[in-house]
Structures are given as C-alpha cells and as structure tokens.
C-alpha cells in the first residue's frame, strides 16, 4: 500500500473541509473494501479522511413507516437492530449476510452504497424499497443514485449522512452468493406495498438496477409463476469467471421467484 496522510474528523463539516484541502483525498468509512483496494494499489489517495469518529452519522431510528440508518452504522448493528428487524426484517437479514462477522463489525451501509460494487447487497435494497440517500447537500432517490460500475451520483465533497428506507408491507432479499466471498453473483430484493411491486437487482449488471420487466409482470400477478414469461436481456449481464451472462440472466428469475415466495 502506498503511503498517505491519515486524518480522523469529528464532524461532516470537518470532513468536507479536509477533502477540499487534499490533493487527491478519499473518505474511508469501514474500509473493508477500500483498504484491500489500496493494498492492491488500485487506489492510491494522497489523503484518507476517516469518517469513523463522526457520531452524527451513526445510529438507527424509526419514525412512522421510515427506518433511518446513519451512514456509519455497521452491517452488524443493522442486522442486530430490533428496530430494523421489526420494521423491515428483509433488510436486517440482508445486512446479516454480508461478508463474514468480522467484516460486518467494520463495514458500513454508507461505505457500501458510496462504493457501489456491482455485486454489493445494499444497493438492491435501496432500489427495491425505494430508499432515499441523504447527504450533506441534498436528498437523492435510490433510483438515481447508482449511475454505473463503482459510480454514483455523489460529488467529490459530498458525504452520505443517512439512508431512509420506507417500510414495505412485505419484502424479501434472495441472493445466489459466491461461496468464497459471499458477494452476490445475483441478488434480488422484492418489496410489495398495496398493488405496487418494486424489484432491485444486484450482481447481474454493471450496477444495481430496477427490474422493470419483473415489476410489470408482478404488478398484475404477484406470484412466482408470473416471472416465467419475463425475458431478461442477456447482453446486459455481467460475464466473468464466477458466472456467464446466460447463467446470471437465469439466476435473476430464480432469485426473483424465491423472493416473491418468501414475501407471501
């Protein structure tokens, strides 16, 4: 790992100030992706600004039908939260299946979303539940946040402060995981409220996206068999040593069916 200048800040304002002064600065949240990336020399920021000391970014609260999760809340905290378990159990379950226990003790929701790994779990929930990403500058809808592989709508000096998840009547997340890394080869988050069904798909394409064709089929008939006739465009699917594009397209439907079944 190339050397860098480390700075721990205690407020969002200080974080923004620090990154503006840095030559090529980067925020670190839990560091579970960023440190390995830096060790591989795929990233070599001049300054690393640690958000871990900012108390205002931590914690979980429920207000009516909205669960607000501070950006620096760890996966372990989300998984163990009775508030999240009671309001959106699928979200607690998702957090409890990211990586392994030691990674979940450090990794954070804000870090996961800002990094936008194509195989990360949280983006599927952000899209499936129609979450809102709150930053120090504005609120961004989940549908507009993920813009490409490792690309988001965030500006360089923009910090995620919290993610607001509206409660769904029923929701479920199913992932076909890589047995070594536990990353999603394909993961599908299905949420149903009244007659409206939303589907967030991760692992399949360059970044998490809404499964609009799946939503259309499920809106008329919320049943696993409704997924059978949906055509998943193979040409947009990722293809790598873990799974071919054709296999991923198939998995999108299988995971969607399992999620729909788990909702009912």
């Amino acid at each position: 790992m190339y050397n860098f200048s480390y700075q721990k800040v205690s407020s969002v304002a200080d974080a923004v100030d620090a990154i503006k002064k840095a030559d090529d600065g980067k925020f670190v949240a839990g560091g579970q992706t960023m440190l390995p990336t830096m060790k591989h020399r795929l990233a070599s920021p001049s300054d690393v600004i640690d958000l871990g000391g900012i108390d205002e970014l931590k914690g979980i609260s429920v207000d009516g039908d909205t669960v607000t999760i501070g950006a620096m809340t760890t996966h372990a905290e989300v998984a163990a939260s009775s508030d999240v378990q009671g309001t959106i159990p699928a979200l607690a379950n998702l957090a409890g299946n990211i990586g392994d226990p030691a990674v979940r003790n450090r990794g954070t929701i804000g870090g996961s979303i800002a990094n936008n790994d194509p195989a990360a779990d949280y983006p599927a929930a952000v899209i499936g539940l129609g979450a809102t990403i709150k930053t120090n500058k504005r609120e961004i809808s989940g549908d507009e946040f993920f813009t490409g592989m490792f690309e988001t709508a965030l500006e360089d000096d923009e910090v995620i402060t919290a993610v607001l998840f509206p409660k769904a009547e029923a929701s479920a997340y199913m992932k076909f995981e890589n047995p070594a890394s536990r990353y999603a080869i394909v993961g599908v988050f299905v949420a149903k409220s009244g007659d409206i069904v939303k589907v967030g798909v991760t692992g399949a394409t360059a970044c998490a996206h809404r499964g609009l064709r799946l939503e259309k089929a499920l809106n008329g008939n919320f049943a696993a068999e409704a997924v059978d006739e949906v055509e998943i465009p193979v040409e947009k699917m990722n293809s790598d040593i873990h799974a071919s594009a054709e296999y991923r397209a198939h998995l999108v439907k299988v995971m969607t069916k399992r999620a729909v079944e788990a909702c009912s």
């Binding site: 480390y6 721990k8 560091g31 579970q32 440190l35 871990g52 372990a76 226990p101 030691a102 450090r106």
Partner: peptide
C-alpha cells in the same frame, strides 16, 4: 469487544 480483521484496519484507527 468485537472481532475485526486486523489486516483490514489501520493502526491509527
């Protein structure tokens, strides 16, 4: 009090 991978945490942290 909780488990972490000490190869993926800085000493300063």
């Amino acid at each position: 009090g909780v488990s972490v991978k000490s190869c993926t945490m800085l000493a300063v942290q």
